[in-house]
């Protein structure tokens, strides 16, 4: 049994009398400890895909099994729990809490786990240091650069040690040096046994991954296991 199983998943948006098929019949399995990249042109449905995988959105039709459980049968609170315990989500638009500091943002997911303040702070600091932001913890999101915000978002996703990490363009705002650092971090996480799913435009990053799925108009256009899969970095 694969960690993630999608069968005939669609996502339609009705705009007036026009139907936008953001996802149009997706069948895909993702194994545990996979290192997968979604690529494809803008509007091909990558973010929609990730939202469904992250249990934020539900398919219009089709089935999504996560860990053998049919996501459709879960209620709002159970989905919240899965998002909190299993999934780390790095959003394309960061989605940081504007009134909380970098530290506060990273601590927040732990609040919903019932972890005490001291322990939370400890874990958040560790996570922030891991993305190289140990010196900016008291800044509000609007006092941070785009790249720094992105790293806060990454730290927040990592702080819970999720088994699945979903990243939507995680290096979109980073310089090449930081990009390399982040990709090294992802490699480490993969080596630790996490499952990584990354949406990206950049070929270098895609090549880093062990499996590349190309999307086009809401369909899987190409699904290939790359050569680098054999050579773990």
């Amino acid at each position: 049994m694969a960690l993630i199983e999608l069968n005939g998943v669609t996502k339609y948006y009705e705009m007036g009398d026009q139907v936008v098929k953001a996802l149009d019949g997706i069948d895909i399995d993702v194994e545990k400890n996979d290192y997968l990249a979604f690529i494809g042109s803008s509007g091909s449905g990558k973010s929609t895909m990730l939202n469904i995988l992250g249990c934020l959105d539900k398919p219009s039709s089709g089935q999504y099994h996560l860990n053998g459980k049919n996501v459709e049968s879960l209620d709002a609170n159970e989905l919240s729990e899965i998002r909190n315990l299993e999934i780390g989500f790095i959003f394309q638009s960061f989605n940081l809490l504007p009134r909380a500091t970098a530290l506060g943002n990273v601590m927040q997911p732990l609040v919903y786990r019932g972890i005490g303040h001291r322990k939370r702070k400890e874990m958040a600091m560790e996570s922030l240091e891991r993305v190289g932001l140990g010196d900016r913890v008291d800044h509000l999101p609007n006092q941070l650069s785009g790249g720094q915000r992105q790293r806060v978002a990454i730290a927040r996703a990592l702080v819970t040690h999720p088994s699945i990490l979903l990243a939507d363009e995680p290096t979109g705002n980073l310089d090449s040096q930081t990009t390399i650092e982040i990709m090294q971090l992802f490699d480490e996480l993969h080596a630790e046994g996490h499952t990584l799913i990354v949406v990206t435009h950049e070929d270098e990053i895609a090549q880093h991954c062990h499996r590349v799925v190309e999307m086009k108009d809401g369909r899987v256009f190409n699904d290939s296991t790359t050569s680098s899969a054999a050579v773990t970095s």
Partner: peptide, 12 residues
């Protein structure tokens, strides 16, 4: 903000 909190695991 509420959406963000829910996305990172806030329950009802």
């Amino acid at each position: 903000e509420i959406g963000i909190c829910k996305a990172i695991g806030a329950k009802r």
